[in-house]
Design a binder for these strands. Structure first.
Length: 207
DNA sequence: CATAGGATCGCCT
DNA sequence: GGCGATCCTATGT
């Protein structure tokens, strides 16, 4: 396992090649998501995730084996990133999981900022660091400088001055974590109520 | 705090 | 041509 500059353990790629995307989504809570963009480093503790279970999940872009130029990256190997444009404005950041050919992914829906506050404030056009600075999937990408054009890269791969990876972060107790239905997927019908969104309960959040 | 409406564009039909 | 794994602002309670 490689160590980053401040000594935190980067997650091994085998973590993202596990087969249970729901389990991975839960385990990512408390981990640290780090980016470097043109030399600017920003990071936050992952506080909210959602699992999307590939072909068998009606809420997934890859439902029923849907394969297009956009969703092709979901079929890459675990540990690659899937970033897509939502509502014409927002880049939504996912980490692809499972083996190559199985289009599972975890959407990162929220982080608690820990590093690079000045850069995140500037990108978010905010003046103060608050709990809402990066508590939504579009906000996460904006704060961390993740653009949808980066889709298809591997975690820890550098391209055009950009790199993103995941490190060990804070340990959580089972009671710190809540599960709930995913957001904005009413169209998924019988899959819309699956409790595949995970978040750190607010009372347990800390730096 | 809750709700409503506009922004904005690549992707799929 | 329509829409979305969202966010922000305005307005009302």
């Amino acid at each position: 396992m490689a160590k980053s500059i401040d000594g935190k353990q980067k997650l091994n790629n085998s973590f993202f090649e596990q087969q249970d995307v729901v389990h991975i989504a839960r385990q990512l809570l408390g981990k640290r998501l780090v980016t470097e963009n043109q030399g600017v480093r920003t990071a936050g503790i992952i506080s909210e995730t959602e699992a999307y279970a590939g072909r068998t999940d009606k809420a997934s872009h890859a439902w029923n084996g849907r394969y297009t130029s956009r969703t092709a990256t979901m079929y890459g190997r675990g540990g690659s990133i899937y970033v897509f444009l939502c509502y014409g404005i927002h880049s939504l950041f996912n980490i692809v999981t499972n083996k190559k050919g199985v289009p599972d992914a975890v959407l990162i829906r929220g982080v608690i900022p820990t590093e690079g506050m000045a850069a995140m404030l500037q990108r978010r056009k905010a003046e103060k660091v608050t709990a809402s600075l990066a508590d939504g999937p579009g906000k996460v990408s904006q704060a961390l400088g993740i653009h949808y054009s980066y889709t298809g890269m591997m975690l820890d791969e550098e391209q055009e001055g950009f790199r993103v990876w995941v490190e060990e972060g804070q340990s959580l107790h089972p009671g710190d974590v809540a599960a709930a239905p995913r957001i904005g997927i009413d169209y998924a019908k019988e899959d819309a109520d699956l409790p595949w969104r995970f978040y750190i309960k607010k009372a347990h959040r800390k730096r």
